[in-house]
C-alpha cells in the first residue's frame, strides 16, 4: 500500500494559565490569563476567544481588557451554563484552553472626530470595555465620549470601580441606569433608552457614532430609538450573540441571515442587520 497521509484535526486550543481571578458580581468573574509558552495575544476591541474548560467544553467569551495591554488578557464570564460555570470556578494557577482571537471589531479608530456613544446593558459592558479603553487612550481624536450603562440593580453594575475612575478623570460622561433600586440609589431608574435624550442633550446627532452591546432586545430597541433621535444607521454598531462551536465559519451554528456571527460579526453595522433583527427566529 502507498504511504497513508496522517490527517490532522483542527480547532486545537493553546494552554493559558489563570493568573488572577477578579470577583466582579455574585455570578460574574474576570479571569486574567497568560499564555503558557507564547507571546501575548494582540486583539482588537470587540473580538472574542474560545475558552475551553477541561473535560467540560468550549464557549466564546469576549475579550474585555485594554487592547494596548495584551499582556493583561481579560475575560469576563457569567455563570449561566456548564462551561461558563466551570470557567467561573477556576482558581488562580488553573490552566484552560484558548483559541483566538476571532471576529470583527468595534471600529472606534475609523470614527475619529465624532462623538462616541457607548450603550451597554448588563454584561454587555465587557465586550465594549476594550473599545472604551482605546477611545480614552486617544481622547483628543474624538469630539466626546459618552457611556450609557443599564444594570439590573446598583449591586449589579459591572466594573463599578472602573466607572468611578473614568468619570472622575472627566474624559467621558457616564449615565448609569438600573431596573430597580433602593432609596440609596440617587441615579436614574429605567431602561437605557430612557437615558438617551439626556445623554445626547446638546450633541448634534449627525456627529454621533453609537456602539451598543447587551441583550438583543435592548440593542434592537436602542438602535430604533437612536435612529429616531437622528443617529444614522450607518453610524451604529451592535455585537450579536449566537450559538458557536467553531468560531471559524465552518460549523454553521451562528448563522444570522447571510452572515456568520463568528466570522462576519460579532460586531455588525446596524444597517446590515436591521432587517433580520426585525424578523422572528432568524
Amino acid at each position: 500500500m502507498p504511504a497513508e497521509a496522517a490527517i490532522s484535526g483542527s480547532m486545537r486550543p493553546q494552554p493559558y494559565r489563570v493568573t488572577e481571578v477578579l470577583r466582579e458580581l455574585d455570578d460574574v468573574v474576570t479571569l486574567r490569563l497568560a499564555a503558557e509558552d507564547r507571546a501575548p495575544l494582540p486583539f482588537r476591541p470587540g473580538q472574542f476567544n474560545m475558552l475551553y474548560a477541561f473535560a467540560t467544553g468550549e464557549i466564546p467569551v469576549s475579550i474585555s481588557g485594554d487592547p494596548s495591554r495584551p499582556d493583561e488578557l481579560l475575560h469576563t464570564v457569567r455563570r449561566v451554563g456548564a462551561v461558563s460555570s466551570a470557567l467561573a470556578q477556576l482558581e488562580r494557577g488553573a490552566v484552560l484552553g484558548l483559541r483566538g482571537p476571532f471576529g470583527s471589531h468595534w471600529p472606534v479608530e475609523t470614527e475619529r472626530g465624532r462623538h462616541l456613544l457607548f450603550v451597554a446593558g448588563g454584561l454587555g459592558l465587557a465586550p465594549l470595555r476594550p473599545a472604551i479603553c482605546r477611545a480614552l487612550a486617544r481622547r483628543a481624536d474624538y469630539a466626546g465620549i459618552t457611556l450609557v450603562l443599564g444594570a439590573r440593580s446598583p449591586r449589579e453594575i459591572l466594573y463599578a470601580w472602573q466607572l468611578a475612575g473614568w468619570a472622575a478623570a472627566g474624559a467621558m460622561k457616564i449615565h448609569v441606569c438600573v431596573d430597580h433600586a433602593g432609596p440609596e440609589w440617587g441615579g436614574p431608574v429605567g431602561v437605557v433608552t430612557s437615558q438617551f435624550p439626556r445623554a445626547l442633550d446638546g450633541i448634534a446627532p449627525d456627529r454621533v457614532s453609537a456602539f451598543l452591546c447587551g441583550p438583543e432586545i435592548m440593542m434592537r430597541h436602542g438602535c430604533g430609538d437612536l435612529e429616531h433621535l437622528g443617529i444614522h444607521p450607518e453610524r451604529m454598531w451592535i455585537s450579536m450573540e449566537r450559538n458557536m462551536k467553531c468560531a471559524t465559519g465552518l460549523c454553521g451554528h451562528c448563522q444570522f441571515g447571510a452572515d456568520f456571527v463568528c466570522r462576519d460579526g460579532p460586531v455588525f453595522r446596524y444597517r446590515r442587520v436591521r432587517r433580520p433583527l426585525g424578523i422572528r427566529e432568524v
Binding site: D27, G122, D179, G190, T193
Partner: peptide
C-alpha cells in the same frame, strides 16, 4: 420603557 424593564433584560437568563 417599562415593558422593556419588565423583561429583566440583564438577568442571567435573559438575552
Amino acid at each position: 420603557m417599562q415593558r422593556l424593564q419588565l423583561l429583566d433584560l440583564y438577568g442571567a437568563h435573559a438575552r
